[in-house]
């Protein structure tokens, strides 16, 4: 019944993570790491790095990977279907009416609350990943360097990950 559980967990994550990509992080962390202990934060960081480096949406990639790690191929199918299904159904409903639902002022007002909150959720995820992964002088150095080149050079995240992998091989 692990497969059904995985499907339900990822459907829940898919139903609430507005903004996609990293915005999904706090939800995955809550369900997969804190509540169910399927993975630890370090393993999940590795999965995120790989999801960033492989083609496709990060949310889908990490769902597929997490699903596989927990329950093999069937697990990855269940997790991927779970993460896709809620938005799929929602989009079809919206598209079939094609009411400009986001032009309604209540919807706009709700999003003026949700948008800043999502930012806070993301900050919380950044905080917990940072305290888990930035643990010694070398990792502080890599963290500051990565942040610096993202900030100043606006470099592609994939290049940043490649540079840091090389640094890891040299430093550790």
């Amino acid at each position: 019944m692990l497969i059904i559980r995985l499907f339900l967990i990822f459907a829940k994550i898919g139903a609430f993570s507005i903004g996609g990509g990293y915005a999904m992080l706090p939800f995955i962390q809550r369900e997969i790491i804190d509540n169910n202990h399927y993975l630890n934060l370090k393993e999940f960081s590795d999965i995120l790095a790989i999801s960033q480096m492989t083609p496709g949406p990060i949310a889908i990639n990490s769902a597929t990977f997490v699903g596989y790690k927990i329950a093999g191929v069937l697990g990855s199918v269940a997790a991927t279907l779970g993460i896709v299904l809620p938005s799929f159904i929602m989009i079809i409903i919206i598209a079939s009416f094609f009411v400009k639902f986001y032009d309604k002022k209540e919807v706009k007002a709700a999003f003026s609350g949700i948008r800043p909150a999502v930012l806070g959720l993301l900050a919380a995820a950044a905080y917990s990943v940072t305290i888990t992964n930035v643990i010694d002088l070398k990792s502080i150095f890599i963290f500051i360097l990565s942040f610096g080149i993202l900030f100043i050079k606006k470099m592609d995240p994939i290049i940043v990950l490649i540079i840091s992998a090389v640094l890891g091989i040299i430093l550790y």
């Binding site: 370090k42 940072t130 888990t132 890599i142 990565s146 990950l161």
Partner: peptide
């Protein structure tokens, strides 16, 4: 090396 960089990305 990648782990602290992931933290920086987020």
């Amino acid at each position: 090396g990648i782990r602290p960089a992931v933290a920086a990305l987020i």
